[in-house]
Structures are given as structure tokens and as C-alpha cells.
Computed example of a mutant assay.
Amino acid sequence: MTKRSFEQFFKNPRLWREDLVAVGGDFSVDRLLYAYTHGIFPWSEDPIRWYSLDPRAIFDINRVHFSKTVLRKVRQKKFRITFNEAFAIVMQACAYREKDNTWITPGFIDGYLELHKQGWAHSVEVWNSENILVGGVYGVAIGKFFAGESMFSFESDAGKIALYHLFARLRESNFVLFDTQQLNHVTWQLGAYEIPKLSYLDRLERAVVDIVPWVIPPSHD
């Protein structure tokens, strides 16, 4: 589809007052890239519902609040940290719930896996001493903008340790905006906060002036 077609499909978040801006479509790379660069994200699969929330939750990349316990575990280096080694497995782990359903359904996994293959979606993996994946996070990076999608922990604090390393690399790459969409207890504790949608869209516009994939800098550990 062309940019014109996407403009007709999605309501303009700057003008539309409702959170829901479209229903339908697909998880194609072009559609996802258009959505993310215009402050829109999908939140269900059947049908696909697209949202631009007001207010919007974000992190200041330089002011994330990790607990002393998390920082101590990072310093101890008991875990092996990798980037983009197990993207599909990280998504599947984020989707796993014992008692309820999650929005990360098979269509999401297929669509974002293709986004990953083309260099736009990334994962951070945390492996224990037995080389078992115990935590991770994934999201979408465009220009100097990162959209954090989900994280998981099969061992205490493992997801937050993944986030710690993600933020460190984002700072090295001079990212300016981290979108976490909606506040929850965990992101609030880490320092996320809400801003008006129009303020978010202004920041996003500056962050995606150059629509290029993220080349992750090597670790200095």
C-alpha cells in the first residue's frame, strides 16, 4: 500500500480524539512502520485494532530507576546478555500466561518476526549459568525512537536486567524517545510517566526524522 492509502486507512492522531484510530488491515512491515512513525500501534488481532493513546506513557532514556537489587545483579554479571539471538522465543515467552490470554497472538508473532528480519524489531535476552533463557524484552526501533513492546521474567528481575542493558545501548546510540504506551505498576516504578498525545507526537516526529533501522553498538563488557 502507498502512504496515501495508509493516510486513508488510519485516522489522523493529531485530529482524532478517540484512542482507537483504525480496525482491520494486517501486520505487514510497511503498515507497521507507518503506524509506529505516526504514533499508532496494534493491540489486538481478531480484528486488528490500532490505537493512539491520550495520554501516552514514555521513559526518559537517561532517567530510568532501577532498584539496588537489579543494579547489584547487573554488576555481578551472573547472566549472559545477548541482542537479537532469540527474537521469536522472546516474543513467545512474553506471550505466555498461566491463567489468562495475552494480546501477543500468533499473528503478532509472525508480523513482528518479519519486522525483526528486516532490521526494525529487536530483542534482548538474559541467559542463566545453565544457558537457559530466563528473561527478555523486545520492541521496535526506528531512527532515534524505540517502542518497548513487552518483557518477561522466568527468574527474579531478569526482565529488568534486560531493560537495563537495552537502555544502556539506546543511550550509546543517542536515542531520544522510548514509548511504553500505557503506564502499569512495573513501568511506573521504573520511572515511566504520561504526557499528552500531542506532546508525544511532537517528540516522535523529531525522533523519526531519519527512518532508518538501528545498528546496535557492540558491548563494552
Rank of each mutant, 00 (worst) to 15 (best):
T82L: 03
L133M: 11
L53H: 02
D30L: 00
Q76M: 05
H116F: 12
W43T: 02
V21G: 03
F178D: 14
G136I: 10
T2W: 05
F175S: 04
S129I: 12
E155A: 10
A207T: 00
P47H: 06
G119T: 15
V137S: 13
M1Y: 11
L170A: 13
V186W: 12
R203E: 10
R63K: 13
D26S: 14
S156H: 14
A141C: 09
D54R: 03
D46W: 14
F66W: 02
N128K: 03
I48D: 12
E130N: 14
M151A: 07
T69N: 12
G139C: 07
R72P: 09
I48G: 09
W188A: 14
K197D: 06
A88E: 15
I109G: 01
Q8L: 11
H38S: 00
C94T: 11
L166C: 05
R63T: 10
A162F: 03
W120C: 04
K117G: 04
L20W: 09
Q189A: 11
R203A: 08
D157I: 12
W16G: 07
V21D: 08
L204I: 01
L198Y: 05
V126M: 05
V134S: 00
R80S: 14
Y96S: 03
Q182V: 13
V126E: 09
V212K: 06
E114M: 11
V140D: 13
H116G: 08
W103D: 10
K117S: 02
A141T: 05
Y51P: 04
A22L: 02
R31L: 04
P42A: 04
G111A: 11
G111V: 01
I61E: 00
F83A: 10
L166E: 06
E7I: 03
Y96Q: 10
V64T: 05
L163Y: 07
P196Y: 00
R17D: 13
A141G: 14
F108A: 06
R72K: 10
R63D: 15
W188N: 10
R63E: 15
T82N: 01
R63P: 00
K11G: 05
L166Y: 08
